[in-house]
């Protein structure tokens, strides 16, 4: 059964066409990585999946029904900018999902329930390598540590669809590899559907089951907003040769220059 269907989806801001005629079907359990030039509409696409932006034309269907137009627990997100809550320690940030679920009115838990949540949270923090920073507030953590905390927080909720907006941009290569392992592990265990934006083409090739390239196949250098980006490559990954990677990289580079100079 199809989880997610894009039916000639458009997104425009005023006269600027950001995305045009997106058509695709994504099954439960796929891991889609998205690459594309800066400013071509990747984050905008995630926002539509999240429900904070709505398509201007076309349909975005989840299990055959229009996707809910407000965020809810079916779709977890890790934003490009840090999305952890500054007033809670790392541990409390990770416990939050459980607390919200078990106490609809107070949003706080006590006693044994709390202890159980805390133990789960500690395990998760160990998994993302933040075991030593349990009691720190986000402002006491580095950018990369905050990003790992955000991933831990989102994964605790076990969403059906996980949206990751350049989650590993600020991490060094060693930790990045550990995070890849963690995300892949949780993806398999929880049968998640993952959409991950990345600027690192190789990460896209290596990590997902499917790679999307967002690019403007029509580009008017005088008016970059006249045409929107489309999915120009939709590849099952793992089987593609280095040549494809290179030619995608070239295309994306030239679009990026046209959009950002």
């Amino acid at each position: 059964m199809a989880t997610l269907e894009l039916k000639s989806l458009w997104k425009e801001y005023g006269d600027d066409v950001v995305l045009e005629r997106l058509n695709a079907t994504v099954e439960t359990g796929e891991f889609v990585t998205i690459v594309g030039a800066s400013g071509c509409g990747k984050t905008t696409f995630l926002k539509m999946l999240l429900g904070t932006e709505s398509p201007t034309r076309g349909e975005l269907l989840l299990d055959g029904k229009p996707i809910p137009d407000e965020p809810d627990e079916t779709r977890g997100i890790v934003f490009q900018r840090y999305s952890v809550l500054p007033h809670l320690t790392a541990e409390r940030n990770v416990m939050l999902a459980g607390e919200l679920e078990s106490s609809r009115f107070l949003g706080h838990t006590f006693g044994r329930m709390r202890l159980a949540l805390r133990n789960e949270a500690r395990q998760m923090l160990e998994d993302v390598g933040l075991g030593h920073a349990m009691h720190k507030y986000p402002h006491e953590l580095s950018g990369g540590m905050q990003q790992r905390l955000a991933i831990a927080q989102a994964l605790m909720k076990k969403p059906r669809i996980l949206l990751l907006d350049e989650p590993f941009g600020a991490l060094d290569p060693g930790i990045r590899r550990d995070m890849h392992k963690l995300v892949l592990k949780l993806w398999r265990e929880q049968n998640l559907t993952v959409f991950m934006i990345t600027h690192d083409l190789e990460e896209g090739f290596f990590l997902g089951t499917r790679l999307w390239v967002f690019d403007k196949d029509r580009l008017d250098p005088q008016a970059p907003g006249a045409y929107g980006a489309r999915i120009t490559y939709d590849l099952p990954v793992g089987r593609d040769d280095a040549h494809t990677l290179d030619s995608i990289a070239d295309r994306v580079d030239s679009t990026a220059r046209a959009l950002n100079d």
Binding site: I77, S83, L96, E99, L100, Q153
Partner: peptide, 22 residues
Amino acid sequence: PEEQIIKMQTLGANTWQIIVRL
């Protein structure tokens, strides 16, 4: 920040919980 309010919703919070916890 909008992100934090969205975050709370994706963690399953209702309006009241967003108010008391965020």
